[in-house]
Computed example of a mutant assay.
Amino acid sequence: MQRRSDQSAATLVADPPEAEVSPRRPPAGRVKSAEIRDILEQEIATGERHAGERLDEQAVAARFGVSRTPVREAINQLASAGLVALIPNRGAFVRETGLGELVEMFEVMAELEAMAGRLAARRVDPKRRVQLAEALAACQSAAERNESDAYYYENERFHEAIYDACGNGFLAAEARRLHQRLKAFRRLQLRVPHRMRQSLAEHRRIVAAIEAGDGETAEAELKSHILVQGERFADLVASLKPKQG
């Protein structure tokens, strides 16, 4: 895949199909900083908010009908994920993420996850086996409902179970940090047609390998599972066609 670090990854992503898009504003009385963050995150990842654009706290608060406190919390979370830059005395601005940088992060993520899978196959205990099985079942339920956002959050739980099972706290912390950094893009690619089903099938193979104590296969499956989101990201982007008419 050709890398183009001078081009924003966000500008390459077309809006997801209308039926798959989450509500643009949560119901009144239920707006939380996490919900605001998710919506702003989606807008950044799809290019609706362009690199360099200022996030006006007051305008965002008015849009959601909340005080500036949850908005500030949401923006701080986006900054922690590397999607927003906080500039003293100026405010928060959408950060440009080049496609080359994005692919490099996916490559590192694949290596971290692969190592976690290999160690989990050797070290998983009965408690972690149950957690992994429950997370897989929750992913399957979300996929059967065809709810990509619900699947994404269950997918987070699935990968958390692998991190917990690997028995290496430092590795788990680094994987969680990068997972958070790539969240917006991993979430978006689940809206590609059939990707949820493919992801679920990959999850099943990963769990089977860990259950069998097969570290080599668990490592290979997890590496492939992440790289499909990175090395093939251009193909995933190309399949996200804007709604016509």
Rank of each mutant, 00 (worst) to 15 (best):
R205Y: 11
L78Y: 03
E160K: 05
N146F: 11
A114I: 05
S80M: 12
P88T: 04
V60C: 07
H203S: 11
V108T: 06
S67F: 09
E147F: 13
L190M: 10
T46F: 07
V13L: 12
V94F: 04
D15I: 11
G65D: 06
G117Q: 03
L136A: 06
M115G: 13
G167S: 05
M1F: 12
S80Q: 15
D125K: 07
S141K: 14
A138Q: 08
L190T: 05
I210T: 02
E111R: 13
T217P: 09
P17R: 03
V94P: 01
V192C: 09
A150C: 13
R187L: 01
L40H: 05
K127T: 15
A61V: 04
S5R: 15
G82C: 04
R24A: 10
V237E: 05
Q189R: 14
M196P: 01
R186S: 09
A51N: 06
P242F: 10
G167L: 00
E35T: 14
L102C: 04
N89L: 13
Q140G: 08
P27C: 07
G91L: 04
A209Q: 01
V192Q: 04
L112Y: 04
Q131A: 10
V60N: 05
Q58L: 08
R181T: 07
A137N: 11
R54D: 10
L40S: 07
R68A: 15
E144F: 02
R197N: 12
G91C: 03
H159C: 04
L182D: 02
K32R: 10
L78I: 00
M1Y: 11
A135F: 00
V66W: 07
G117D: 05
L178M: 09
R54A: 15
E107L: 07
F106S: 02
A74F: 02
E147C: 14
S22Y: 12
G230N: 06
E156A: 11
E41T: 08
V13S: 08
G29P: 00
F170E: 11
L99E: 14
H50Q: 15
A34H: 15
D38G: 10
L12G: 08
L190G: 04
A19E: 15
R122T: 04
V71Y: 01
G167C: 00
